[in-house]
């Protein structure tokens, strides 16, 4: 049964269907979702984007993305399909500068965004029009007025093993890494949790509810806004940075003093 279902799902997702037809279908499905969760409600805004915006997005897509992701976003051996990834994914990847990718490698690097907000919104609308997917969160969803303490606990349990308890980032296998979250915007955090870019797992709404996500964002934004109370933070890298500091700066300085004390007076 399950396999049959999946098969029919795939056939429905064939890229041959016209973008417009899928957009119409999406409206119906989106409406269904909206009744269940408030999160999906927000999805309607980008999906009901005007046809002209979708057309602009399509043009931009063909010019900048299609060489790797395929003319119909069906994916190639160099890049995954974008059908069903949703507007949130496009917004995350393009506004953080990860897409268009500069070079292939273990991990696509973030850089200054190549497109402006209007263009990013258009591309997001186009990709969202292909198939239903996670939508860009609203400002209210990423506001930092959640539960701070709960956010910290959720962060340590779900995120710290890769991103470090202080959000300083960490290494993954084979040259991949979890970036530091010290400069990451709130919307970007939400989209990353929702879409699981690159090596990050997807934390969907059943896994971490929109409230959980908001709490985590509240905690991270708190850390960003409050500098270390103990003085220089040494990037919150922990004992390795502290050890380096004590050997180089502290012991180095003290050796300079010993040399001064041990010097023969002239």
């Amino acid at each position: 049964m399950a396999s049959l279902n999946r098969k029919s799902m795939f056939s429905r997702r064939r890229p041959f269907a016209a973008a417009l037809v899928i957009a119409a279908g999406l409206l119906v499905t989106g409406g269904g979702y909206a009744a269940a969760t408030t999160a999906v409600k927000a999805q309607q805004d980008p999906t009901v984007a005007s046809q002209s915006q979708i057309d602009l997005g399509h043009k931009l897509f063909l010019a900048n993305c299609a060489s790797c992701h395929g003319k119909n976003a069906e994916g190639t051996k160099n890049a995954p399909t974008l059908i069903g990834v949703g507007a949130a994914s496009v917004d995350f990847q393009v506004s953080s500068g990860r897409m268009p990718a500069q070079a292939s490698g273990p991990q696509i690097q973030a850089k200054a965004a190549v497109f402006n907000d209007k263009e990013i919104a258009a591309m997001a609308a186009y990709v969202a029009s292909l198939a239903p997917g996670p939508a860009i969160p609203t400002d209210a969803m990423v506001a930092n007025n959640g539960d701070l303490t709960r956010g910290g606990q959720l962060f340590r349990t779900n995120c710290a093993m890769c991103h470090n308890a202080a959000g300083a980032g960490g290494a993954l296998t084979q040259g991949k890494y979890a970036p530091a979250l010290t400069d990451t915007g709130a919307k970007e955090m939400y989209e990353a949790m929702l879409t699981g870019p690159q090596n990050m797992p997807v934390f969907n709404d059943a896994n971490l509810s929109p409230k959980d996500k908001k709490d985590i964002i509240t905690y991270l934004v708190y850390l960003q806004q409050h500098p270390s109370v103990g003085g220089l933070s040494l990037d919150n890298l922990g004992p390795v940075a502290e050890g380096l500091f004590v050997w180089v700066a502290v012991l180095g300085g003290i050796i300079a003093i010993t040399v001064w004390l041990g010097a023969k007076s002239n």
């Binding site: 910290g152 606990q153 340590r156 349990t157 710290a160 093993m161 890769c162 991103h163 470090n164 308890a165 202080a166 300083a168 980032g169 960490g170 290494a171 979890a178 850390l223 919150n236 890298l237 922990g238 004992p239 390795v240």
Partner: peptide, 15 residues
């Protein structure tokens, strides 16, 4: 920044 000890989370960069 580290929070109280709880055996389930393990932070990256634990040294």
């Amino acid at each position: 920044l580290y929070g109280g000890y709880d055996p389930s989370p393990v932070s990256a960069g634990t040294q």
